[in-house]
Simulated scan of single mutants.
Amino acid sequence: MTSSSTEVAIIGVGLHPFGRFDKSAMQMGAEAIQLALDDAGVQWKDIQFGFGGSHEISNPDAVTRLVGLTGITFTNVFNACATSASAIQQTADTIRLGKYDIGIAIGMDKHPRGAFTDEPATLGLPRWYGENGQFVTTKFFGMKANRYLHDHDISQATLAKVAAKNLRNGVLNPNAFRRQTLSEEEILNSPVLNYPLTKYMFCAPDEGAAAVIMCRADIAHKFTDTPVFVRASEIRTRRYGAYEVHATSAAVDEDCSPTVYAAKAAYEAAGIGPEDVDIAQLQDTDAGAEIIHMAETGLCADGEQEKLLADGATEIGGSLPINTDGGLIANGEPIGASGLRQVHELVRQLRGQAGERQVPTHPRVGIAQVYGAPGTASATILSL
């Protein structure tokens, strides 16, 4: 694999809070864009191109009517939960190609309440089908977590530790949806949706928007004294044998996970290894996903997660902070904005601007990972 010598820097980030709001996804997207512009110290007329992603909106490019009809190139993308990670990759790669100097990646979404339980109605199924934990997505999450915990001797209590940690982190994040702590016991004793996953081990589809402005690294000093560099952004799909939602009859082989390949490709492109990562944002659609993705991104070996969680390694003050803004469990997941939220948090942490949730060891390298059904994964590496 070859890559351009052009380096890419992030000079501005903007995040509309995640939750439930009396406004459209497009309005939230416009607000996130303006926050990113303010952060970068540029105006909309300075942006030369954009990539935008959404699940609910078929034409995210229409956000330009709210921020300025300047005639820029704008491409809409959708890649399930990897949607905004795809926007990030395409924005960075377009700059690396030398076609433009400065561009923006945008994500926005507005999902209905209780989408995990209400979506069966769109398939002609009664509401109780989802309420009983029988929707295919949550079934898959439960089966995947159950197999992984069984194979690597990890307890259900460790899942509760993940959820409790992320909810604690969410309390420190003014942009989070869920800002209330729950004890590990409360999480374990909440209704089981799909064993071993209980109600509070899941994220909630919700609303929000995020934007990231990038430019050629050699001009970043014109805009900021604290550029954050996009060292790599790689996307991979699954291989035959991956354990996947929506059907596969192949024998299960965990090494086939697209996250494994996306992470390996990102480390190679960045010229580093997982041992160099100081902070991580991992897809935690459920608590089991965070545990699985810790190993799939190379941050630990399979089965080491229980001890790492017990020792506090993944806490904000630990040796490997994970999901310092609360992750999906605290923020929820507006699909089009989720990966950009991860990058927003990494940028804030690397700059030392994360407030109460700032990692005290001054992180210099971060990884963001997202995974979208039916088997698309992304890994993005940022550094100072």
Rank of each mutant, 00 (worst) to 15 (best):
V42W: 05
P205F: 06
P126L: 09
G273E: 03
T376G: 08
L320G: 01
F21K: 05
P120F: 01
R147H: 11
G326F: 05
A82G: 12
V252Q: 10
I104D: 02
A85I: 04
N194I: 01
Q48Y: 14
V252E: 14
V347L: 13
V8D: 08
A220D: 09
D276P: 00
L308I: 05
T73W: 04
G208D: 03
L15I: 10
N132P: 04
I213A: 08
E290R: 01
L125T: 13
P374T: 15
T70L: 07
G41H: 14
I106C: 02
I88P: 11
G303M: 08
N59D: 06
F223I: 14
A121W: 06
Q342A: 14
M26W: 00
D253G: 03
E296H: 12
T248A: 13
L149A: 01
A80F: 04
V77L: 13
A280Y: 02
G327D: 06
P17I: 07
M28H: 03
F18D: 06
A354L: 04
T297D: 09
S383K: 05
D284V: 03
T75G: 03
M108D: 04
G19F: 01
Q156I: 12
A115S: 07
E306Y: 04
A368R: 02
D325Q: 11
F135L: 02
R20L: 04
Q281N: 14
P321F: 03
T83K: 14
N175E: 15
Q27Y: 00
T376D: 10
F177C: 10
R341L: 13
N132F: 11
F223R: 13
Y243R: 08
V260R: 14
A379T: 06
A289I: 04
K264S: 15
G339W: 01
E304P: 05
P174N: 02
D118V: 05
P360Q: 07
E186F: 09
I316C: 10
Q353S: 14
E186L: 06
T2N: 10
E184S: 10
A85S: 13
I381V: 13
D311V: 02
L328C: 09
E290S: 08
G107Q: 05
